[in-house]
Design a protein around this nucleic acid. Structure first.
Lengths: 339, 339
DNA sequence: CTGTTAGCGCCTTCAC
DNA sequence: GTGAAGGCGCTAACAG
């Protein structure tokens, strides 16, 4: 069942079938209706390769997702949800999603070649280092690229992420409202966009509420559990330890809670904890972890929409970014009563 | 940079370039070496669409992964790891991975058409119901299909999964070795292959160790947390409650532990628990959950290898399946001492 | 509005 | 061992 067969059966030429099915305006309503109906009835689907070859557009989006970068073990707690959103939004637009292999660092043109090889219409990146030569080369290209939790820069790029700054401020506000005045934080790696924004939000909210900002209350973590435990121990050893800690990632937060418990403190009694991400475990540990939930599915749907906009828009130097709202999920770790 | 350009620069015809790059035997070693070197130097990559159109092979594998099927919330704790393995193994073979959209149940030929549309060389399925018309139609086809944790049936299909039966037996053996004699289980939905196998392994090991099998010790769960908690409560309310429970999934196991704790029991003191899956939370909860770890990455690499075999092998009626080894991860929930 | 004619970039017979 | 020619299935100019 190819286009010629369909053309024969509908009594028109292949060109007309192509036009009718692709929504071209030059076809009469009657012919189009007839062709569309017949195509549906016969289950005709144009061959993707032939279509791509002729039109130079593939309706294919590439996903660049580096499983090695900083993922020493389990990372990207959200890949699955992002994929769900992305897949749904793309297929609504008639687009497909292809997973790109990781190219070695010395193959500078690797991604650009992959994009050409598959005639990709756009690329979604997550969990990659946008400063590597291979990625920079890709970003410099007019191929639409959107970064998830990644601040991208290029003629046709955009970034999608949560409004981490506001979210962190919400966390601090929540703790403050519960009566806490000595609020510390354990950060992520500050060269990562979300980590930096969360710290900025923490600081901003302290200032807004006229709480003193103490350098020793800002402990550096790396999003992994061990750094959360170490950070908590360090905070609790302070002469004037905090009564609450905003931890920039849930894996660290859970470990931080355990570190507190292990050293004889109670959570939230002695120290309240608020995390970030709402990983599965947040609801499974005791006490349940109060945390910031991100709408990962929407990361995906937004990425698909932004990609379409980028493809239509002219190239530009203006950095574009979309910030998504988050939600504070209150569980037991922040305590329900003031201190 | 297309094949003609490369041909011109290497002083041969496009046909020879094609043969050289595709490892055809008819090319002289010298010409091949020259062409391969030049191709590498110029970074030539044949256009995927043109190649697929001409050769009728795409080197593309489709991933069928239903995000709705039984995934009321968070499921498939292993998608990410599977993808890592799959992507790595496929790209080693020069193949790509494309995520297939879910087709509506009334579109019986949907997947078959998708396979043709993209000229897919094979399909990996996970988290789908293989009894639906759309999937059955695909399986009936000579297109290579491998199911992860799915017992598939068709002329060119195979199944890859853990050796769930042995794994469950290991769990029971572990509990028995710790001194437990009254060992119960909370199962998954028994129409799912892994759940049925785990129950079979539990029963087999009881028999091997001459432990009495009691019907009231086999409680039905559905892999979700709530059913784990309910199952544990029911077991503990028994006149002669078990001293150990093998829970067929970690989400249920964690909830089961909490249910035990909530009703005044201690874990592992009053009741020991062994789970299945080794989800992230297993190491985060207290007590840490003893569980069976599956090698999900290997699911992916194995699927890629099996797909290649299926493509080369003739169609057959023999069901093929590959069972992967698992690993018992001992933490605190099973206790380190006998009762 | 519709048909005819060329390719899109590559592989693959068929000659040589 | 290598080249020439045709075609994979579709889209996009160009006519009409």
């Amino acid at each position: 069942m190819d286009i010629d067969e369909l053309a024969r059966r509908s009594g028109v030429s292949a060109a007309t079938v192509s036009r009718a099915l692709n929504g071209r305006p030059e076809v009469s309503a009657a012919t189009r209706a007839r062709i569309v109906a017949l195509a549906a009835e016969l289950g005709y689907r144009p061959n993707a390769s032939a279509r791509t070859l002729a039109s130079r557009r593939s309706e294919l989006i590439g996903l660049l997702w580096d499983t090695d970068y900083r993922s020493g073990g389990r990372q990207h707690p959200f890949l699955q949800e992002v994929l769900i959103g992305l897949k749904a939004a793309l297929s609504d637009r008639g687009q497909g999603l292809i997973l790109l292999p990781i190219v070695p660092p010395d193959d500078e043109a690797g991604y650009v070649r992959l994009a050409r090889q598959y005639t990709l219409d756009g690329i979604v990146m997550m969990g990659v280092d946008q400063h590597t030569p291979q990625v920079r080369a890709l970003l410099a290209t007019p191929i639409p690229c959107v970064g998830l939790d990644l601040a991208l820069d290029g003629p046709r790029t955009a970034s999608v992420g949560s409004d981490n700054r506001t979210a962190a401020a919400d966390a601090v506000a929540h703790l403050h409202a519960l009566g806490h005045r000595r609020i510390a934080t354990i950060t992520g790696p500050l060269d990562l966009w979300p980590a930096a924004e969360r710290l900025a939000g923490y600081r901003a909210e302290l200032a807004r509420r006229r709480l003193r900002r103490r350098p020793e209350y800002e402990v550096a973590g790396d999003f992994f559990a061990a750094s959360g435990a170490a950070g908590m121990r360090r905070l609790l050893d302070l002469p004037s330890p905090p009564t609450a800690v905003f931890v920039a990632g849930d894996a660290m937060a859970v470990a931080a809670m355990q570190a507190a418990t292990d050293t004889g403190r109670t959570v939230p009694g002695d120290v309240a904890v608020v995390g970030f991400d709402d990983i599965d475990a947040a609801a499974m540990v005791r006490p349940g972890l109060t945390t910031i939930a991100q709408d990962y599915r929407r990361f995906g749907t937004t990425a698909a929409a932004v990609l379409a906009e980028l493809a239509a828009a002219p190239t530009t130097d203006e950095p574009r970014s979309v910030l998504l709202p988050t939600r504070l999920v209150v569980r037991e770790s922040s305590g329900s009563t003031a201190i």
